[in-house]
Design a binder for these strands. Structure first.
Lengths: 254, 254
DNA sequence: ACGATTGTTCCGAATATTGGAACACAAATA
DNA sequence: TATTTGTGTTCCAATATTCGGAACAATCGT
């Protein structure tokens, strides 16, 4: 898995020696690992002997995405939110320290829609991420915070656990999070947490959020706060629907 | 991997016992496998103890898709083909016996675009699949054909290796494939093969295709044949670009 | 032509996986 | 309430697999 992650996250096809240098595994072992991954279709070996992500990853994701309950439940709400704001709307889910984008409704189709789905962004400096962190039970929050490294993407990015915690307290109080160019410059965002399943359960249970994002020149902080109530309400609707649709012991159909 | 495939391809979250029955592995072994898959984020265990595809699959696919060379190269050509025909255009790649959809340009945005990417369809009864099979070197073609089971999706679906082979011969002769309701009723399609990399190489080298698809009432067989030359030419352009862009020993940038 | 680099194969030693059986818990049944 | 059935989890010795150093080709650079 470490090898797969390494090759997939690279920015270009890697040769055997490149992977060898990065993974620090013995050559014999590494070679066998790569062969297995290629056999399984998780990696693809090109004619020039470089390795790149395999097609099977795509089909896995297609199944994962098209089946996803939260996404299915949230979709009409996202559409509504987009209709009322006119800006880009995201749905994301927390995965330890990162947010994975599950769905998107875009104002203009200039940037291709699916290009964002499956993308991963740090939780501590995005609206979605901070909203999700704010509703995490203490145990899981600690586990996440312990693994964060505070990379300063912009001048506004939180630089310490303390700063993040203070922000999370504010977010818990208001029920929504604001990202004012913390991850990308010229980008503003307002987000609210979505939690599926029973909150009673400390370990399981999906935590995520929805957000409205736009360029800073058009979407001012004032505008974000005007939308904040709406975003929070829509997020609550999704949480509610997700709680209701909580798979009631459904048996497989065979 | 067999367990992962099983859970991902199911139509609903599976319980431990369901997977046990399907996989025929001893309970101890299966339990450990599932635990490992959950640890790795490839599966997710819900509060009701059922298993569903994990989020990590999405992020893997995002990387795989956004980096994919063939897709990047083909995109402008697909746009051109769509502009000239006005119908849905697909790009797909052959994976042993199946076609994996890599990209899509749709006439109307009614059906969501990304819903198809990563989807898998049988090669022997789709235009894309037959086009790809038609340019496969004999060794690889045999390997693929040996693993096909001829499920009759419609009245027009090929039912035997012989029928498929005869069709492939025609396709080789003309340079394009026609799918007249072989996979789905009321759906017509014309496709042409794309082969990236050096054809000299027998084992490596990507084989795929592009297609124009539409409802049978609007896109008649006559219409398909009118488009066939265009589709073939665009496919050749993509093959050419892919051959040129054939990664010339590029070193990683670190 | 020569050494350096790269990809691949081999095989005994070390290790992790296997799977049957026992365990814990719940829900259903008597 | 006692008993049974079903379900998820843990344990551990036998076993099969992986590990990784070293040898082997093939290619590249000079």
């Amino acid at each position: 898995m470490a090898v797969l992650e390494l090759v997939v996250n690279a920015d270009m096809p890697l040769r055997f020696t490149d992977i060898h240098a990065l993974s620090r595994q013995p050559r014999g072992t590494l070679h066998r690992h790569l062969s297995h991954l290629v056999e399984e279709g998780l990696l693809f070996q090109r004619a020039d002997l470089t390795y790149e992500p395999g097609l099977r990853l795509l089909s896995f994701a297609h199944r994962a995405w098209s089946r996803n309950d939260l996404r299915r439940i949230a979709r009409p709400h996202l559409d509504r939110l987009h209709a009322e704001t006119g800006e880009t709307v995201h749905l994301g889910v927390l995965r330890t320290t990162d947010i994975v984008y599950l769905d998107k409704v875009e104002s203009r189709q200039t940037v291709r829609m699916e290009s964002q789905i499956g993308r991963v962004s740090p939780a501590y400096c995005t609206g979605l991420g901070k909203a999700a962190l704010s509703v995490l039970p203490p145990a899981r929050l600690d586990a996440s915070l312990a693994r964060i490294s505070y990379h300063p993407f912009t001048a506004n990015t939180h630089r310490s656990r303390g700063a993040l915690m203070a922000d999370l307290d504010r977010i818990r109080g208001r029920g929504y999070a604001i990202d004012a160019e913390e991850h990308e410059v010229e980008i503003h965002c307002v987000a609210a947490p979505v939690s599926s399943g029973d909150k009673a359960c400390e370990t399981h249970g999906i935590v995520g959020g929805i957000s409205v994002t736009g360029p800073a020149y058009r979407v001012t902080i004032r505008q974000l706060e005007a939308w904040s109530g709406l975003v929070r309400d829509v997020a609550n609707s999704i949480s509610h629907d997700a709680g209701v649709g909580l798979c009631p012991v459904s048996a497989p159909d065979w």
